[in-house]
Amino acid sequence: MASVTVKQPCTKCDKGGGVATCGGCQQCLCVKHFNEHRQELATEIDNLGEERDLLQRNLIEDIAAYDFPSYVNDWEQKSIAKIQAAAEQARIDIQKYLDDKKQQLKTSLAQVTNELKLGRQSNDYTEIDLKKWMEQMKQIRETLENPSTILIIDDNNTESIIHLIQVKQTETTDRAIRSLEEAAIVTRSGR
């Protein structure tokens, strides 16, 4: 017996037998609707191609719009300016400290010189005076020869890559200079 083939109707028009089945959507279509279906798919692929082209243009334009190298260059220049400002302030602080220290030592030495001169002129000095003046001059010499009385402090902030520095005077320097000044005051008031 011969087998009877039942044709499925077109899913679009429900008429006649579908002569083709779409491999994607598995619909059975007549010739007319199969051609329309293929045209719709061709239109969709053209639209996808245009969208891809638009995305490609936008991608190139957007990357060019972000001027990352310029941002990094600006950050670099600002960081360098901060470092230079900190270095200049450190130089100013060191020079001011050295100038102040030099002036204080000159003042202390002038006071000892004046006391020596007065002691010679009046010829009323004793071994105690000589010992005190020698001690004062020794302290002046030690202060002059030991410039390590300032500290350069590294601002070691762990959140920052760039560490700034500060200049600080140590307490021993302040004490040594005050000691010289107090000795000179005592000598002047004792005379």
Rank of each mutant, 00 (worst) to 15 (best):
Asn114Tyr: 05
Asp93Val: 01
Gln104Pro: 00
Asp62Arg: 07
Asn35Phe: 02
Arg52Glu: 13
Lys78Phe: 04
Lys78Pro: 00
Asp100Ser: 10
Cys30Met: 01
Arg38Trp: 00
Ile94Glu: 07
Phe68Gln: 08
Tyr125Trp: 11
Ile60Glu: 14
Leu59Gln: 11
Val31Arg: 13
Arg52Val: 11
Lys117His: 08
Lys101Phe: 01
Gly119Val: 04
Ala42Thr: 05
Lys78Met: 08
Gly49Ser: 12
Ala86Met: 03
Gln89Lys: 15
Leu48His: 07
Tyr66Leu: 15
Tyr97Arg: 04
Leu130Ser: 08
Ala87Glu: 13
Ile128Cys: 01
Asp46Lys: 13
Ala42His: 04
Asp74Met: 07
Glu44Arg: 09
Ile94Gln: 06
Tyr66Gln: 12
Lys101Gln: 09
Gln27Asn: 13
Trp75Gln: 15
Lys96Ile: 07
Arg57Phe: 01
Ile128Leu: 08
Gln84Glu: 15
Glu127Ser: 12
Leu105Tyr: 01
Gln39Phe: 05
Leu29Thr: 00
Thr43Phe: 04
Leu98Cys: 05
Gln95Phe: 06
Arg38Thr: 09
Glu127Val: 05
Val72Gln: 09
Ala85Ser: 12
Gln103Lys: 12
Leu55Ala: 13
Glu40Leu: 14
Gln39Gly: 08
Ile128Pro: 00
Asp74His: 07
Asn47Ser: 11
Gln56Tyr: 05
Arg38Cys: 05
Gln103Pro: 00
Leu105Val: 00
Asp67Cys: 02
Gln95Ser: 14
Ile45Ala: 07
Glu36Ala: 10
Leu130Tyr: 04
Arg120Pro: 00
Ser79Arg: 07
Glu61His: 06
Asp53Trp: 00
Asp53Leu: 10
Glu40Asp: 12
Leu98Asn: 13
Tyr125Glu: 05
Asn73Ile: 09
Ala85Met: 06
Ala87Leu: 11
Ala42Lys: 08
Gln39Lys: 07
Phe68Val: 15
Ile83Phe: 07
Leu98Thr: 07
Arg52Ile: 14
Ala64Arg: 13
Gln103Phe: 05
Asp100His: 04
Ile63Cys: 04
Ser70Ala: 15
Thr43Cys: 03
Thr126Leu: 01
Glu44Tyr: 03
Glu127Arg: 05
Asp67Leu: 04
Glu76Arg: 14
Gln56Phe: 04
Gly119Ser: 15
Leu105Ser: 02
Asp67Lys: 12
Ala42Cys: 01
Arg91Ala: 09
Arg120Ile: 15
Ala64Trp: 01
Ile92Gly: 07
Gln121Cys: 00
Gln84Asn: 14
Ala110Leu: 07
Gln27Lys: 13
Thr43Trp: 01
Leu130Arg: 08
Gln84Phe: 03
Asn114Lys: 08
Asp67Glu: 11
Asp124Gly: 10
Leu41Val: 10
Pro69Leu: 02
Ala86Phe: 01
Ala65Glu: 09
Ser122Phe: 06
Ala85Gly: 05
Gly119His: 04
Leu116Phe: 08
Val72Ala: 09
Lys106Trp: 01
Val31Tyr: 05
Gln26Phe: 03
Ile83Asn: 04
Lys82Leu: 11
Val31Glu: 12
Lys82Ala: 10
Glu51Trp: 02
His33Tyr: 02
Glu76Ile: 11
Val72Ile: 15
